[in-house]
Amino acid sequence: MTTVDTVEQADTAPRVRGRRSGVASGRIRTVGMYLISIAIGVGIWQLVAMQYGSALVASPAQTITAAKELASDGTLLNSVIASSRRILIGWGLGLVVGVPVGLLMGRLTVIRQLLDPYIEFFRFIPPVAFVTLAVVWLGIGESSKVVLIFYTSVFIVTLNTIAGVLSVNESKLRAATSLGANRWQVMRSVVLPATVPHIITGARLAMGNSFLTIVSAEIVAAQVGLGALIWTSRNYGRIDWVFVGIITLGILGFVFDRVLRVVSTRVLRRYGVKL
């Protein structure tokens, strides 16, 4: 090993350690800010509960006690599992259908002109408007809830995918074609990588809307689920149970979105998208 190599390694090592130290301190700072934010939120929540009383606003301590009560007999866990299953199945189906349809509509003008009127019509009708029809047509089983979640997700994913396809630089498409790429190769090598960020954005938005829909669907046609838990709690006058259901929905959505962000980061890196 030469003297130059030794000097270069000596210079590189401190930079690597400094970079790692900076990343670690950044993560610690982020966690610290999260904890401070949560502490402030809980403090405000406690003040509001003290102001209005337990009949209107359950305090943090009452909510924790109610959560333990619901967890002890398995009600909370069963509700979380039921709602999560419905959301993931309906959302997943929305991705499976929405992405290919969006790619085709973005690339083929004829298909876009044929399907665009239906998408523009139905996407403005909220899923809650179809709750009654879903129950009448599909019953009170899992199908009605899954279909409503699918309805919520598919249009969001489709529109974001179309936007991604239409945003592809035309010069890249012409360059790939001039090099002899056929339609499938252009789609796989040029269009899809450029559309992935839009697809991921659509997936995250669809996930958020799925949580909005699941509550309405479970209130009308479910015995188990977080929406059903909130509605049942209201019937029994248990405000603390209502708070448990609402907070659990928020935590569940936060976890789902974080997992989706981690997966999305890896997918984006795979396609060479800079973060």
Rank of each mutant, 00 (worst) to 15 (best):
N209S: 15
D240H: 00
V146I: 14
T158S: 03
A10S: 09
R188V: 11
S210C: 09
I149P: 03
M105V: 02
R123A: 04
R188E: 10
R20D: 10
G106E: 03
I119P: 04
G180P: 13
L95P: 00
F130H: 01
N169K: 10
A61I: 14
E142N: 15
T161C: 05
V42N: 14
A129H: 04
E120R: 04
V168I: 10
G225K: 00
Q46H: 10
M207P: 06
G227L: 03
I87M: 01
G26I: 04
S178Q: 07
G94K: 02
V97D: 09
S84K: 11
A222L: 04
G22E: 01
L260T: 00
L108D: 03
G41N: 14
L47C: 13
I200D: 02
G98E: 05
L249S: 02
L115I: 01
R270D: 02
N160I: 10
V154S: 12
L166Y: 00
L114H: 04
S21A: 13
T265Y: 12
G41Q: 12
L47Y: 15
N160E: 08
I219N: 04
P197Y: 08
T3S: 07
V157S: 06
G253A: 08
V128I: 06
P197N: 11
S189V: 12
T177H: 11
S59Q: 08
R258A: 03
S210M: 03
R20I: 12
S21V: 11
A13P: 11
Q223S: 11
A10E: 08
G227M: 06
M187I: 05
P197W: 11
I64M: 12
S216H: 06
G32F: 09
V186T: 08
S54N: 08
T177R: 15
V224Y: 00
W184M: 14
S79W: 03
T132M: 10
Y271D: 08
V147P: 12
R269Q: 01
F121V: 01
T2Q: 07
M50C: 09
G250Y: 02
A13H: 08
R266C: 02
S171C: 05
S21N: 11
I81L: 13
L138F: 15
I111F: 14
I149N: 05
A176Y: 11
L104Q: 00
R112D: 05
L192N: 05
E8C: 03
P100W: 12
G225Y: 01
R29F: 15
A39C: 13
V191E: 02
S72F: 07
G225A: 00
R17W: 15
R266M: 09
W137D: 07
Q223F: 03
V101W: 04
A217E: 07
S83Y: 04
L159K: 13
I230C: 01
P193S: 05
Q185D: 10
R107W: 14
L115C: 00
L138E: 07
R238H: 08
Q51L: 15
L93P: 04
A66Q: 13
D240R: 06
L115A: 00
K145Y: 07
F211T: 06
E142C: 12
V168G: 01
